[in-house]
Design a protein around this nucleic acid. Sequence first.
DNA 1: ATAGGTTTTGTCAAGCTTTTGTACAT
DNA 2: ATGTACAAAAGCTTGACAAAACCTAT
Lengths: 290, 290, 290
Amino acid sequence: MDTPDGPPVLRIGELSRRPGVSDHVLRAWESRYGLLQPVRSAGGFRLYSEADESRVRRMRAHLARGLSAAEAARAVLGEDSGAGRAGPAAGELPGALRQALDAFDEPAAQAVLDRLMSDLSLAAVLRDVVLPYLAELGERWERGTASVAQEHFASNLIRGRLAGLARGWGNGHGPRAVLACPPGELHDLALMVFGIVLNRNGWRIDYLGTSTPVEELARTVDARRPDLVVLAATLPETLEPHATQLTALARRAPLALAGAGATAQIATAVGARLLTGDPVTEAGQAGWPR
Amino acid sequence: MDTPDGPPVLRIGELSRRPGVSDHVLRAWESRYGLLQPVRSAGGFRLYSEADESRVRRMRAHLARGLSAAEAARAVLGEDSGAGRAGPAAGELPGALRQALDAFDEPAAQAVLDRLMSDLSLAAVLRDVVLPYLAELGERWERGTASVAQEHFASNLIRGRLAGLARGWGNGHGPRAVLACPPGELHDLALMVFGIVLNRNGWRIDYLGTSTPVEELARTVDARRPDLVVLAATLPETLEPHATQLTALARRAPLALAGAGATAQIATAVGARLLTGDPVTEAGQAGWPR
Amino acid sequence: MDTPDGPPVLRIGELSRRPGVSDHVLRAWESRYGLLQPVRSAGGFRLYSEADESRVRRMRAHLARGLSAAEAARAVLGEDSGAGRAGPAAGELPGALRQALDAFDEPAAQAVLDRLMSDLSLAAVLRDVVLPYLAELGERWERGTASVAQEHFASNLIRGRLAGLARGWGNGHGPRAVLACPPGELHDLALMVFGIVLNRNGWRIDYLGTSTPVEELARTVDARRPDLVVLAATLPETLEPHATQLTALARRAPLALAGAGATAQIATAVGARLLTGDPVTEAGQAGWPR
DNA sequence: ATAGGTTTTGTCAAGCTTTTGTACAT
DNA sequence: ATGTACAAAAGCTTGACAAAACCTAT
């Protein structure tokens, strides 16, 4: 992996303060081991890049491990010569997305998504890349393999893209769908995906999002008279307490339950349709009797 | 196109008293900048219309913004000749936004925001329209005047716009800020606004969002070495339990607390800076010793 | 490339107060690093724009990161010329697009479009930026002010973006529209815009494009049985020869004529609806009896 | 680590001009 | 009401200075 690099703009004082290494030492490491090769300003000042900062930090890490200064410098320079690549090939894009998101690398993640969106159809990107990634992220999160920060970073970024795709989805002349999650349910990204694909298929979306009280949902249904209501939940426990109200609701508008929390049992109990497939496929078939 | 206009009936004394500008000044503005062109009575008195009063008020507004008298006058006259467009007038846009959002009218709300964004600066839209609306929404929600559905609809729509503006904010070469809300805090829209303005001022943003565990935040800070960390909370109770950890954090990176939940007490206790102003203003001044 | 900008109206005192930088320093940054290039008032006072304010703030952000003043200024100026972030204020983006396209600067033009698409809604970008630009380009082209190469470059680039937005517009469940230009008509970008907005409003689009023989159109109409047929022409002469066939067509499907070549005379003669507004607005209202 | 020289950059001063609210005389 | 005058506030330019940060060499 190659060291990310900005333009050389840091003076020695700053490069000394940041990792906590004296400027004398920095100059010594430069002259003795060639650890750094700063550019010079017009007046002769040394100018370092962020990659140099990384080199200093790694130098210190090696020293702490017990290497001699000469060995540590050699190790750092050895790490640097490892190759960098152009961009990922088409087939590796999903993997590249995962990698970029895991590394908190927003520009890279956005670039991968841009590339995907121009190579594939929207539905394909959502179905084959975004949703699988979200599912995997959820699993890793449950197993404790993914950190909260990773989970936040990735879902914020994805939410941002989805919000862009959702823009204006309440507009138009098609049939109307109301989308919501039951109280306590905080995951709504898959529901957004469902809404986006539904909208691209000519539907208007009224989106209530996470943790919507059932009374509120009922009120909205009465006000908007939608052609479809979709409730998405990841756990059955978030749906079960509202079975009675949902039964009533299902009589006033076509109701569908989706997500891992939507069991056949609950669906038949309340008289709702069960959506078992992935959101993209289900949205592609929505609204039609089966 | 001209400003809607009543008959010219106000004498200079009245036009002086109403907006609180001396008659001397009114005459000076007339002769020096041609701001007003009053009709004359039979006896030679100046007679002003309501449009003139509006001009005077706008003149004063520009002066308050820091323009010179000459430039302010030019701006006012420019506004008058600038074409009138369809839709609500500039001043009514904030009201129009509220109305559209309350009515679940997405197209209208998006149109108002579009109009605002092309009429005003981004900072002005966020500071003077979006944030006040969010505050008002929060209040109505606490008082039970706003329904959950309304609150969801409005914040989803606004979040969508903010996400668009946030695109790529981790990119670039500027100083780096890590933004997060403490565990339990679910409102992060104002924090997003802060991040967007900060980014427009040259900063890179790492955004962790709502309900971030403090250990996670600490880990991110160690990994990213930001130049600023901002924690936003609406209730003091969400910050207090983590005082010890925050104190440690504040020693490793410049820490700032923001939001209604950030009290002077907590801030001094943990050794953090307190951000009391609105997010837009604070972001405009960030990064510097005060 | 320079940042296009709001009017320069701020004097140095105000530009000093807002971000909290002394006037002395502002002048020093101007003379030493060329950070600002204020216009001068008649009397010689410096007049700054809002973009200048942003430059000052970004300068300060870089300083906070530890850059020297010289490097910080260079970074700010680099950001300005490098496309994208913190670039032109929302209101000035259309000008920036024109400039980029006229200069054959594809990356810059794409960046401006990206920025526009994330700041504004799709409809707003198409209606307020893309279509006006195309109209202006057409005029300049007629007056001989624009070169053929310019016209080709700009319309190819825009066509590419529109093609991306048009992706998948024939799919879905909504009403169906057939879009075409009559034989001899080569300008179809506005028609594409119409189709894109129509699609976002829930319609499916069958796009025949430029110079479609009327028999071909008729055959398509019979095969697809659309809910709307739109013919767009810039000159009446391209429509007139086909009046008879169009009259027949209008009896089999709702027909609308659009573009500067669609006169009321022709429309009534063939029994078609006349679309006089801009494509975006018309598409927003399409399909409904008026 | 110290010493002695250089570069960078914020600040200040002096002397003059422009801008603008207010005052005075007609 | 008009026109002229005036003075405080805000700006402009040139030039200089000194503290901080950096350089090389010992």
